[in-house]
Nucleic acid binder design. Structure first.
Lengths: 248, 248
DNA sequence: ACCTCTTGTATGCACCAAGCATATATGCAC
DNA sequence: GTGCATATATGCTTGGTGCATACAAGAGGT
C-alpha cells in the first residue's frame, strides 16, 4: 500500500499532525412505494449547503469499519437495522465540501416499504421520489421530488450518488437477486414484476417474467394467497431458503 | 453528509488535531500475457508485512482527487499514463494496517501486454500471474504466482482485492466492452475471444462469439491482415470509433 | 507443383428462452 | 347468477446460441 518513500514520510511527520482528509459514509436508503423509487433525504440546517437536502451520513470513526459506519448511520438517522446494505462508490473530488477535504464512501440500503413506513420521518427529513431522466441508456444525476412533487435542491453531489444507485440496481437486477430486498417477506409475482419495471423504467412481458422467475429457483410457494384484493388473489411467494438471497 | 452533531464536533475540535484515517489508493495493474491474467506487485522492504508483495499504492494528497491519485501511482510505480482506469471498491477494516487506520480505495487498470512489456520491471517488482481458484461461481482471494510459478506471499488483503478485480471483470464482460483495453489497437477475433476466455476461466463457442461480436457494432474492419503467422492470416479489427469504447 | 497442416470464414440446422396471443380459472362486487 | 379484473396455463413464433460441416487461404515440407 505505501512504498518506502511514503512510509518514511509517515515516520518523519507525526501521523496525527499530517493533514488528512475526513472520511464520511453517506447512505442512500432506497425503497419502492407508490410505484416509485424513493430515498430518504435530510434537510441541512448548517453551513455549508444550508437548506438543501442531503443523504444521511456520518464520519467514520477510527475503530469502525466502513460497513459499521453505514449501519450506524442507518440506525441513528432512520432507526433501521438489519437491512440490505452494500457499498456503492467512493467520491473524492477535493472540492466537494468547502470546509475541509471530505472523501465520501457511498452506500445504498434497500428496504421494503412497510418497514420504512414504520419509521418516523422527522420534520427535517423527507422521503423523496426519485425521477430518473435517462430511462434508456446512460447515467448521471437524478431529480429528487418532495411529497408535494416539487423538485428538491440537493446538496453536494448527492444527486449523482443516487443516480449511480439506480444504475447499479439496473445492472444487478439482470443477474443478481436484488429485487427481493424491496419487497415484504411474502409477495406476489406481479409485485416482483413491478419492482423490476420501476427500477428499469420499462415494462416487461408478464408471462416471460413469470416463467423466468419460477425457473430461477429463487422462489418458493408459501401456499398462502392474497386476501381482500377485489379480484382473483395471487399466490404468495417467498425467497427460497437455500438460495441465500437478500430480502426484506 | 454530516449532521448537526458532527458539524459541531468538527468545529469544536480542531480539524487537524482530530485523528483521521489515512486514505490510500491501491491500483491493480492488470494485463493478459502468456495466456494468463497478470498483475504488477511490489516487494515490501519496510515494516509492516516486510518481504511480502503488495499492489502499488500511495496516499491521497489533500488537493488531489482519487482518480488523480491512482494515475499518479501508475505513473510513479509503472511509468504508465493514459490507460483504462476504474475505481473498484473501498476497503476499510480497522485492522488492515497495524501502523494506523488506513482506508484503501482500490482501483484497477487494464493495459495491453505490449504496452506493459515496454515498462521496466524493477528488482523489487514482479509481474505476477493470477490464478483464480473459483472458476465456477463465487468470489474470494486469488493466488498470485511469480514468474517461476512459486506462490507469492501477498500483503494485507491485496489477494482479495485482485479477486474482486477478476469478479468485476467477469461481470462487466457480459454487458460492457471491457476486453478491448487488454488488446493492442488492432487485433483478431480469436485474440478477443482468448481475452474473454481467460477472464471467465472457460471456453466459448467460436462461431457464436464471432457472430455476437460482429453484430455488436463495437468492431470495425481495418482491412489489414495478420502477417507471418504460419497459417491462414485473420482479419485485423479495431474498436469502432463511434462507440466510445475504452481500448489499449 | 503438390500435399498437408493449421487456422479463418461461411452456411445450415437443432434447441432454448423470450415475446406474444389465446383460453380458462377464480375471487369479489353487484 | 353476471360482470369484472386479475391469475394461470397452453401453444405458436422468433431470435440467439451451440454445434457440425464444408470450404478458403497462407506456410512449409516433399
Amino acid at each position: 500500500m505505501a512504498d518506502t518513500t511514503e512510509n518514511e514520510f509517515l515516520k518523519t511527520y507525526d501521523a496525527n499532525a499530517f493533514p488528512r482528509p475526513s472520511v464520511a459514509v453517506d447512505v442512500a436508503l432506497v425503497t419502492i412505494d407508490d410505484d416509485r423509487l424513493q430515498t430518504l433525504l435530510i434537510r441541512r440546517n448548517e453551513h455549508p449547503q444550508r437548506d438543501s437536502w442531503s443523504l444521511p451520513g456520518g464520519f467514520v470513526r477510527l475503530d469502525e469499519s466502513l460497513d459499521a459506519t453505514a449501519e450506524r448511520v442507518l440506525a441513528t438517522k432512520a432507526g433501521l437495522t438489519g437491512v440490505y446494505l452494500e457499498q456503492l462508490y467512493t467520491f473524492g473530488e477535493p472540492v466537494r465540501d468547502p470546509r475541509t477535504r471530505v472523501i465520501s464512501v457511498a452506500y445504498y440500503a434497500l428496504v421494503p416499504p412497510e418497514k420504512l413506513r414504520r419509521v418516523a420521518i422527522g420534520a427535517d427529513q423527507c422521503l423523496a421520489a426519485i425521477r430518473v431522466p435517462w430511462a434508456g441508456e446512460t447515467g448521471g444525476a437524478v431529480e429528487l421530488l418532495a411529497p408535494n412533487e416539487r423538485r428538491l435542491k440537493v446538496a453536494f453531489d448527492h444527486g449523482e450518488i443516487v443516480g449511480m444507485v439506480v444504475k447499479r440496481l439496473r445492472g444487478k437486477l439482470a443477474y443478481a437477486p436484488v429485487g427481493y430486498a424491496l419487497l415484504p417477506k411474502r409477495f406476489t409475482l406481479l409485485q416482483l414484476q413491478r419492482v423490476h419495471e420501476i427500477i428499469n423504467g420499462s415494462t416487461v412481458n408478464k408471462d416471460s417474467f413469470r416463467r423466468r422467475m419460477l425457473a430461477s429457483g429463487e422462489l418458493e410457494e408459501t401456499g398462502a394467497m392474497q386476501e381482500g384484493v377485489g379480484h382473483r388473489p395471487a399466490s404468495l411467494y417467498r425467497v427460497s431458503a437455500r438460495k441465500n438471497v437478500p430480502h426484506g
